[in-house]
């Protein structure tokens, strides 16, 4: 599906669809006139996307899709979605793994470092433990695999990778990420793919764990 | 896919897969020897399901799947998943809508009534507002539709319905749910389907909003 994507810049959720489109060849244009906080509160926008959230996608034939995983699915191809129903189920599993096991903990840990949330020591320590568990599961799965599902890149890799961007950029310093060599290998391979690079730019791995920015 | 489902009883997340299997004809057996808190902490279980969470599913040919939406996808059929990639994207969208727009607020509101969590007035009031927004979006979508995606029941209906069970059972009393007639119609139709009834039993709509159980 080709169409228009509404998002603010540097939105890791929007990256999922943009990277999927790079692989599938779908023509996805980011609406350059979109102003977050204004456009998505307008009647015209809310008529198409009642929750007013982004990313939001309108296909060239007028179909409106919200939820970043769904948009990525829509602009993907068969290889990215999974060729068999079981492969698709594994893709859905990893998509949900990213949203349930990584995202809340990632935001809890990283947002205070970006100065957009108060720091809470207990919550941050808990978030670190949750991230360790998630990385351990990922690492173990990637022991003998190059990609999360099947033998080629899929939406599983793209969505999990995008959800890990903030962590690998701001807080997963070398000593912290050392036990997860397979996950590190997989992540580094992905962010250096031309299709990924063309969306997220040059990616710099965290050298020193960011701390709370007051 | 046929196989064994590991879950504790009355788990709305497990209902998704069990209902999907009723429609698709997939043979899904709930492991009756599973003890939550014991079995899912055993080495054998963690080897297959590293995060130790339920529901968890092992297909007859040995594939292990976690995340309830993924299990439902695996045991479903083409009609339930969506016949076209765009329909599938819509299904994924509603699955994520249930997890992102309904579930957090549902837990916040209902769990204190079930004695699962402490009551917090501010959080509960916010949860009620979130649920109103979600129901409004659902209601508006169902103005001229019988099902969420396409012309027949799909995983979109099943997953959103299962995520709404606690709300419609415990807290959405008649006066609260009155503005959402399309959603109420859709929900009532679903819970009275034989395939759904055979999993969740006879469903009783909330008559009086449950309050915090100390």
């Amino acid at each position: 599906a080709s169409g228009t994507l509404y998002t603010y810049p540097e939105n890791f959720r929007a990256f999922k669809a943009l990277i999927a489109a790079q692989y599938s060849g779908a023509k996805v244009t980011v609406d350059s006139s979109f102003v977050f906080g204004e456009t998505n509160k307008s009647d015209a926008f809310l008529k198409k996307f009642p929750l007013g959230k982004v990313p939001a996608f309108e296909s060239t034939d007028g179909k409106c899709i919200f939820e970043s995983n769904a948009i990525a699915w829509a602009v993907a191809n068969e290889q990215l979605r999974g060729k068999s129903p079981m492969d698709q189920a594994q893709v859905v599993s990893w998509m949900n793994f990213a949203d349930n096991e990584i995202l809340p903990a990632s935001c809890t840990w990283v947002f205070p470092c970006l100065g957009i949330m108060q720091f809470n020591k207990g919550n941050t320590e808990r978030a670190k433990e949750d991230i360790k568990k998630a990385l351990a599961a990922l690492n173990s799965h990637l022991l003998s695999r190059t990609y999360l599902v099947g033998e080629r890149i899929s939406l599983a890799d793209i969505t999990v990778c995008c959800t890990l961007l903030h962590l690998y950029q701001y807080v997963l310093e070398p000593s912290f990420r050392k036990p997860y060599q397979n996950a590190n290998r997989w992540f580094t391979t992905l962010v250096n793919q031309p299709q990924v690079k063309s969306v997220i730019g040059e990616f710099k791995l965290c050298e020193k764990m960011a701390q709370f920015d007051n | 896919a046929s196989g064994t489902l590991y879950t504790y009883p009355e788990n709305f997340r497990a209902f998704k897969a069990l209902i999907a299997a009723q429609y698709s004809g997939a043979k899904v057996t709930v492991d009756s020897s599973f003890v939550f808190g014991e079995t899912n902490k055993s080495d054998a279980f963690l080897k297959k399901f590293p995060l130790g969470k339920v529901p968890a599913f092992e297909s007859t040919d040995g594939k292990c799947i976690f995340e309830s939406n993924a299990i439902a996808w695996a045991v479903a059929n083409e009609q339930l998943r969506g016949k076209s990639p765009m329909d599938q994207a819509q299904v994924v969208s509603w699955m994520n809508f249930a997890d992102n727009e309904i579930l957090p607020a549902s837990c916040t509101w209902v769990f204190p009534c079930l004695g699962i969590m402490q009551f917090n007035k501010g959080n509960t009031e916010r949860a009620k507002e979130d649920i109103k927004k979600a129901l409004a979006a659902l209601n508006s979508h169902l103005l001229s539709r019988t099902y969420l995606v396409g012309e027949r029941i799909s995983l979109a209906d099943i997953t959103v319905c299962c995520t709404l069970l606690h709300l419609y059972q415990y807290v959405l009393e008649p006066s609260f749910r009155k503005p959402y007639q399309n959603a109420n119609r859709w929900f009532t139709t679903l819970v009275n389907q034989p395939q759904v009834k055979s999993v969740i039993g006879e469903f009783k709509l909330c008559e009086k909003m449950a309050q915090f159980d100390n």
């Binding site: 603010y8 810049p9 540097e10 939105n11 977050f36 906080g37 959230k53 349930n100 995202l103 809340p104 903990a105 935001c107 809890t108 947002f111 970006l114 100065g115 957009i116 949330m117 919550n123 808990r126 978030a127 949750d130 | 504790y8 788990n11 003890v35 939550f36 808190g37 014991e38 992102n100 957090p104 837990c107 916040t108 769990f111 079930l114 004695g115 699962i116 969590m117 959080n123």
Partner: peptide, 30 residues
């Protein structure tokens, strides 16, 4: 980016809810 991220709806309390739910059903099971 930070300003937009600040407006994102994240379930920060998810771990608290998950823990409570897990404990409740573990007690019920055993």
């Amino acid at each position: 980016m930070a300003l937009e991220l600040a407006q994102e709806n994240i379930w920060f309390d998810k771990w608290r809810v998950d823990d409570a739910e897990r404990e409740f059903y573990e007690n019920k099971s055993m």
